[in-house]
Structures are given as structure tokens and as C-alpha cells.
């Protein structure tokens, strides 16, 4: 079931990113100017943050396989805390964009930027909640399912980041 969800999510984000590339092809000058306003370093830092959180989630699954329940909970807590750093950095990026007068309806680029990254941020929030749930209901199957969702969030960002921030 989780794999179906992962495949569906990848399809949704894949379609959104292809739509972004198509829209950019219609207005390359406008997209280039708007994209230069993004904080690419913050995006890079957030990539490292999510991948590091993913490491702790993967280590938690391994610990649970070995029957180390206390260690599993500790590693899941660390994964969730690092994941929340992603949200803090993202909120800072949004605050800077909004302070610069850029919102959902400023340009096609900004509409797609806020929708795609906002939808991803919602997944990060859900992921942190799910990690919290599997800390309590810590059967191996639950931990594997919860961390698989978290890795899917990682995977989506691995493709979203270069598409929205780097390619130009």
C-alpha cells in the first residue's frame, strides 16, 4: 500500500515539475529573472538537512530490525527534529519572498514555486507527524512504513530542488 502511495506521489510531483518546465519554456526571461530572487544556498542547506534526517530514519529502521526499541525511538526523534529544521529554513525563505513583494499571484514562476514547494512542505509536516506516530506504535512494519514515507519526501525534494532552484 505504501509503495502505491509513493508511486502516486512521485507521479503527481513529476507532472507538476514537467508543467513547470513547460511554463518556463513559454516565458524563459520572466522565469530567469524571478528565479534569481530565490536563496539557492538555503535550498542547498535544506537538501543536506532532509538527507541527514533520512539517514537517521534509515538507521531507526535498522535498529528496529535488530530489536533495539529504545534506540529506534531515539533515532526517530532525531530524524523528526532535523526534519523540522527544514520547515524553519523554508519558512524563512517564504518570509523573504513575501517581504520582497512576491506572492502566489506575482508571476507564473512564483505561483508554481509556492504551490510545488508548499505541497512538499505539507508532506514534510505529515512525515514528521507519521514519525511521531511510529515512535509510539513501533512494530517493525509500522516503522518501515513510516520511514518509507519520510524517504519519499526526501526523494521528491532531491528532484524538486535542482528543478526549481538550479536549472536556468
Amino acid at each position: 500500500m505504501m509503495w502505491l502511495l509513493i508511486a502516486a506521489e512521485l507521479l503527481v510531483f513529476g507532472a507538476a515539475l514537467l508543467g513547470y518546465a513547460g511554463s518556463r519554456a513559454l516565458d524563459p526571461v520572466g522565469f530567469a529573472a524571478a528565479q534569481d530572487g530565490l536563496d539557492r544556498l538555503a535550498g542547498t542547506i535544506n537538501t543536506a538537512v532532509l538527507l541527514t534526517s533520512g539517514l537517521f530514519a534509515a538507521l531507526a529502521t535498522e535498529a528496529r530490525r535488530r530489536g533495539e526499541r529504545g534506540r529506534t525511538r531515539l533515532l526517530l526523534t532525531i530524524a523528526a527534529l532535523i526534519g523540522s529544521i527544514f520547515l524553519v529554513v523554508k519558512a524563512h525563505e517564504y518570509a523573504v519572498e513575501i517581504a520582497a513583494g512576491n506572492g502566489l499571484d506575482t508571476s507564473t514562476f512564483h505561483t508554481l514555486y509556492f504551490l510545488i514547494t508548499g505541497f512538499h512542505a505539507v508532506h514534510v509536516i505529515f512525515g514528521i507527524v507519521i514519525l511521531g506516530i511510529v515512535m509510539i506504535f513501533d512494530d517493525l512494519e509500522h516503522v518501515e512504513t513510516g520511514t518509507a514515507f519520510w524517504h519519499m519526501v526526501d526523494l521528491v525534494w532531491v528532484v524538486v530542488f535542482p528543478t526549481l532552484y538550479l536549472l536556468r
Binding site: 512521485l10 513529476g14 514537467l18 518546465a21 513547460g22 528532484v159 536549472l167 536556468r168
Partner: peptide
């Protein structure tokens, strides 16, 4: 599936280079 998606995106940026 990811390769096809990324290849199409990169190709679109390479063809319409700003």
C-alpha cells in the same frame, strides 16, 4: 521513471537556453 522525467526537464532548459 525518474530518469525520463529529469531528462525531459533538463532537455527543455537546454533547448530554450536563457
Amino acid at each position: 521513471a525518474l530518469s525520463v522525467t529529469v531528462a525531459l526537464i533538463v532537455l527543455s532548459f537546454a533547448v530554450i537556453h536563457q
